[in-house]
Amino acid sequence: MIIDVQLASFFTAAALIALGLFAALFLDNLIKKVIGLAFIGDGVNLFLVTLGFKPGGIVYIFLPGMSADTFAQSASYPLPYAMVLTSIVIGASTLAVMLGIIIMLYKKHGTISSKKILDD
């Protein structure tokens, strides 16, 4: 392949963030906006995971019988992975709150167009 996995993964993350930003800023439908925001979160998480990834490395789980030196040299860096776990859950809960508010707004206004609801 022309580019390695890590670089390609960074590009994927960037593409997801760009798509999400575009949707969140320019699409009119509120649910579409929220979908865009979910993609921004996904993109950032993918970016963090890719940071910890070591090409040709092994999973950061210390198995019995493994020598400490090999582990230290070839394991991928676990700190970003631990962060992503938290971040995924935070993203999902924020999303649930947003969708809940949208449902309440639909009951009140009868529409989910952001132009009609959010503009004063």
Binding site: L21, T94, M98, I101, M104
Partner: peptide, 17 residues
């Protein structure tokens, strides 16, 4: 209050990532 909350949360879900 719902409209303001949603706007604030939208901006927050851009700013926090």
């Amino acid at each position: 209050s719902y409209e303001t909350a949603l706007k604030y949360l939208f901006l927050g879900s851009i700013a926090a990532p």
